[in-house]
Simulated assay, not measured.
Amino acid sequence: MRTPALPADALAALPGLAAFGRTATRLHPRPGTVTAQDSHVGGPLRWPADEPWPLCEHPHMVNEEVPLPQELLDRLAAAQRGRTQHNIITDEEAVLHEELATLVGPGFAGWGSMGGPTMGFRYVPRPHANPMLAVAQLRAANVPDLPTPGGADLLQVLWCPFEHAQDDEGVWGPTMRLVWRREADVTGPLATAPDSAVGDDGYVPAPCRLHPEQIVEYPYPQELPEPLQDQAKNWPGDYVTMFMAPGWKVGGYAKWQLTDLRPTPCRVCAGPTRLLLVIDSGESNATARWRPVEEAGADPGTLGYDADEPTGVVVGRWGALRVFVCPTCPGAPFRLDQQ
C-alpha cells in the first residue's frame, strides 16, 4: 500500500525540518488469512514446540457492578438540575460524587446504565495465570525499520487481553511480552497456541496480513529545537496530522498529544529509548493525508473491511499503545506509553 506523497510546499514552509526526518514502516494491517511463516497481526506465531508459552501472572482487573440506592441517585439528579452552567458541576454534586465513590469502593470507575438500573462500576484485581495472546509477528525481511538486536530477525508480540493496573508505567491496559528470536533457530514449531481467557474484546486482533511501507516522518513539535518549535506552532495547518503517521507502525516518532513530551529512559543505562512499535486503534485518523492511495474514495462495502479500524483493536479510548526500546541495551526491559 502507498501513502499519498507529502505536499511539495509543506517542508518548504519549515526550513530545517527536513534534517530531522526519520524513517518509519507503516504496517497497513488488513484482514486476511495468515500463517506462522508470515509477518502479521493476530495470527499464529512461529513458536518453538519445546519453549513454554508465556503466562501473565499479573493480577488482571475485572469490572464489577455495584447496586446504588435510589435515594442517592435522586439526590444526584436534583443536584444536577441545580447547575447554572450545564458543563460545570455544583458543589453539592462534587460531594455526592465522593459519596458514590466511597460506596462503590476501591477501584471506582464511575456509574451508569447499560439498559437497566443505574449501577456503580469498579475494577478489582483477580490473580489468574493466563496464557498470553499473540498480537503480532514481524519479520525483519518484511519490515525495514525493525531492529535486529543480537542478530534476531523476528519479533513476536504477545499480551494478556485484560485490563491491568501497571503502576510502574502509568499505563492501564494489557500486560505485554516481546520475544526476539532468529527464525533459523525455530526448527520444531508449536502447532497450536493455548487458549487465552479474554477480558476485553478490543484486545483481540483480527487476523491481518501486513502491507509494509517505509515512509519518512518528522518529530512531535516539542522534540524540535526551539526555533523550529515556533515555526511548527505557526505553520498554517495541523502539523501533527501532516508530518506524523498514524496507525500501526515500526520506528519513526511518537506523538504526545495527551501528556506533552515526557521522558522514557532506559531502565538499565538511563539513556534515551527509541520508538519500536505503535499499536493504534485507527489507521488514518479519518484524514486523506494518511489514507492509502489504493483505498482513497473506495466504498467500504466494496473493501469488505473497515479501512480505518481493520484489526478491531481498541487501546484506551481509541488511542495508541507505544513501545520504546533502548538502542544500546538490547536486553533491557522495554517501556510503554499510552496516548
Rank of each mutant, 00 (worst) to 15 (best):
Q229M: 14
P292R: 10
P272R: 13
E93P: 08
F108M: 04
A78T: 10
A332S: 12
W172S: 15
R81Y: 11
P69S: 10
G43T: 06
L154T: 08
P149E: 07
Y239K: 04
H128F: 06
A140L: 00
D91A: 15
E163H: 13
Q156M: 06
V143N: 02
W235K: 09
M132S: 03
Y218T: 02
E57P: 05
W235T: 04
H40K: 11
Q80C: 07
D238E: 12
R274W: 07
G316H: 00
Y253L: 01
H86F: 15
E283M: 14
A286L: 10
A49D: 15
G120H: 02
R81D: 14
A298R: 15
P292W: 08
I88D: 11
D91G: 09
P161T: 00
W248T: 00
A94H: 01
V268M: 11
W290V: 03
T287C: 11
P219Q: 04
A10L: 00
D306W: 11
E99W: 02
R335E: 14
P29E: 12
C326A: 14
A296S: 12
C266F: 03
L45K: 11
V179G: 12
V198Q: 08
A12G: 15
G237V: 07
K255G: 15
H58V: 15
R30G: 06
L321D: 10
E71N: 09
G105R: 02
P161A: 01
A165L: 14
G105S: 05
C56H: 06
R289N: 07
Q222H: 12
C269V: 01
Y123L: 15
A134M: 01
R83V: 09
L158A: 01
G252K: 01
Q156G: 03
V143D: 06
A77V: 12
L68C: 08
P205G: 06
L276H: 08
M176Y: 09
L158R: 03
A332F: 08
Q231G: 05
A232G: 05
R46K: 12
R317Y: 14
T148E: 14
Y239M: 03
R262K: 11
P161Q: 00
P219R: 04
D50I: 06
Q222K: 11
T25Q: 00
G252A: 04
S196W: 01
Q231D: 00
P225Y: 04
A232H: 05
G43W: 10
L55Y: 03
E223I: 13
A141L: 03
P236V: 00
F243G: 05
A141V: 03
P125M: 01
I88Y: 10
S284W: 13
A36E: 14
L133G: 11
D337P: 00
Y123P: 07
A286M: 05
V325Q: 01
L321V: 06
D91K: 15
G115I: 02
D9N: 03
